[in-house]
Design a protein around this nucleic acid. Structure first.
Lengths: 117, 117
DNA sequence: CTGACATGTGACCGAACGGTAACGTATCGC
DNA sequence: GCGATACGTTACCGTTCGGTCACATGTCAG
């Protein structure tokens, strides 16, 4: 919804460990303990990452007995894709033209000689 | 191309100011001074953000006299879209089914009666 | 009940981040 | 040349982040 919600998603995706967690959850729901196994860090470190993912809406949680089932919610990622990243495809052609015009002459270049650093 | 490069892109996108900078650059190349105007922060703060964007490969720079031309490079965003985010669309249907099965009972819900776990 | 196990929480620490201020460098206009 | 201007850099500061340790809670098994 708001810019702030998207910010949480971007910040959640900014960490490699969290992205790996999302990768694991793409195969299906997992308990917290299962999610901890592939990582070298503490279980609590993983839980804090999970908390960040839950806050961003990327992971949904249910309790089942003494276990905690973490499920991927792909909706926020799709949202920022549609609202944010898609636009860069739309303008990509224009920007690539800019780049071509500004950078395509290695020798004569933009003004005088841009050859040297 | 490595995971590390993608990490730089994700980290660059994690900041709202940097995303706004990319938005501005979607309209075309801009000098550093032009990019600073819409923001309330110091010019140098913007320059540090620009440096992060350059490091991630999202912005390309050319010098023109005493000016610095910043140009959007949409390639890295497209890369992480294709390598990373697209996969979440592929598994979205499966995960949504998981969610439906686990969460579909509305009010009485989580208690023991909905045993279908 | 009791113990084992899985999950949650509070306090703390070093590193990285976002920010400012002040100073330095290079280029254009006159 | 010389001042104004645009860009770049060094040093520093408070906050956030990723991480650990120790401890608390809740739940299943016997």
């Amino acid at each position: 919804m708001s810019e702030h919600d998207d910010d949480l998603v971007f910040k959640a995706l900014a960490d490699a460990t969290r992205r790996r967690l999302l990768d694991l959850l793409r195969d299906g729901p997992r308990t917290t303990g299962e999610l901890c196994e592939p990582f070298a860090v503490t279980r609590f470190a993983i839980m804090k990452h999970l908390h960040a993912l839950v806050t961003a809406g990327l992971v949904l949680v249910q309790r089942r007995g003494r276990e905690r089932i973490n499920t991927l919610n792909p909706v926020p990622i799709r949202r920022i894709q549609r609202r944010w990243l898609r636009q860069f495809e739309a303008d990509a052609a224009d920007r690539l033209l800019d780049l071509a015009q500004h950078l395509e002459r290695p020798a004569t270049s933009t003004r005088k000689k841009a050859s040297r650093a």
